[in-house]
């Protein structure tokens, strides 16, 4: 468990203040025990219990907006953490072979517990330099085209695909528009319905709108417990609908962007549980969970004949929305 040396000053994480306070006190106690050799083990145990309680209480009742901030937490595991710490092997493959190599999307051959697959994920940096290089996880068209090229390669090589979604959104800039941001995303969405190999999609942090969906058409779409997936950022929604960019908490609530609601709406298939207090507090446990979840789903998907897989993939997204229920005639039929 990584413990902060002093309470986090990030205002967005204010709801964690009581936990951070206890964690800070615990680190002081531990330091005291080490330097003075006093026997304060009982106090330390009591403090650990206090922390566990505080975490339990705080996280049992997170608002949607708090959860968005957990999803954005700088210590939360990002694609490069899974690559470095979870995968047994990773061969990065660069470039869209048309224009450039977008650092905001990482693609490559990966193996985990004996399963091989193509990883396609948004990349967010941890240091300031990395964050600037990756545009804070906002991809350009060349990033989406790189993703599609590697997915086609996976299809050819008979490998399944795992996509990690973690982006505030696709990059809104001059170059992105010139090179066809819309067309790149749209083409990825359409072509992912044609890729003849299993696709497992996991929202590991931020699921920001079209930029997320551009690598988000999966046979299974999972979300980590404190990830969010939304049509627009709470900030953007508040600015447009409430004409007040500060009313983010209301917007986050209204947008219904958390895993349980999206599962209920039939948009997300399952939730990957996070350790108590979120993946940013205990990356190790988060990795261990993922080490089970990814192989389990890949093994299940591998059992399904590819024609059925493709047909089910189209059907799954075709049916999202209540309208299919209103018109029973639209339930799937055998081709006649």
């Amino acid at each position: 468990m990584s413990r902060p040396k002093k309470p986090d000053t990030n205002p967005a994480m204010a709801f964690e203040r009581p936990i951070q306070e206890f964690e800070f006190q615990l680190s002081e106690l531990e330091e005291l025990a080490e330097t003075t050799h006093l026997d304060i083990s009982e106090e330390i145990v009591a403090m650990r219990q206090k922390i566990a309680m505080a975490i339990h209480e705080t996280y049992a009742d997170l608002s949607a907006w708090d959860q968005v901030n957990v999803a954005r937490h700088p210590d939360r595991p990002v694609a490069s953490d899974y690559i470095a710490q979870l995968f047994d092997d990773f061969v990065e493959l660069h470039g869209d072979k048309m224009y450039g190599d977008d650092a905001a999307i990482v693609t490559g051959l990966a193996s985990l517990n004996g399963r091989r697959f193509m990883l396609v994920g948004h990349r967010k940096g941890r240091t300031t330099k990395e964050r600037l290089e990756t545009n804070f996880g906002c991809a350009h068209p060349e990033g989406y085209r790189k993703a599609l090229r590697k997915m086609r390669l996976a299809e050819k090589m008979g490998l399944p695909i795992v996509t990690f979604i973690n982006t505030p959104g696709a990059y809104p800039g001059i170059g992105a528009e010139e090179r066809g941001q819309s067309a790149a995303i749209a083409e990825n969405i359409l072509e992912m319905f044609r890729i003849k190999t299993p696709i497992l999609t996991i929202v590991i942090g931020e699921g920001g709108s079209g930029g997320a969906l551009g690598i988000g058409i999966g046979d299974r779409v999972l979300m980590m417990q404190y990830a969010y997936y939304s049509v627009i950022s709470p900030e953007g929604c508040a600015a447009i609908l409430w004409k007040d960019g500060a009313r983010t908490a209301e917007a986050a609530e209204a947008l219904k962007l958390t895993a349980p609601t999206l599962i209920e709406l039939g948009i997300v298939d399952g939730m990957v549980p996070e350790p108590p207090g979120g993946a940013h507090r205990d990356r190790e446990t988060a990795m261990q969970t993922m080490a089970r979840v990814i192989p389990d789903h890949l093994d299940e998907l591998a059992q399904i004949p590819v024609d059925e897989l493709l047909s089910a993939r189209r059907e799954k997204f075709r049916r999202i929305g209540a309208l299919a229920d209103r018109f029973p005639v639209l339930t799937p039929q055998e081709p006649s």
Binding site: F193, S209, G210, V231, L255, L265, I320, G321
Partner: peptide, 26 residues
């Protein structure tokens, strides 16, 4: 663009419409 009053249900229409167009195109 997408209608934000319908949240993720709107975003998923991007997928739905592309899926139908893939079908038509095939």
């Amino acid at each position: 663009g997408a209608r934000m009053h319908e949240g993720m249900l709107s975003l998923m229409q991007m997928a739905k419409t592309c899926s139908a167009l893939a079908e038509l195109s095939d």
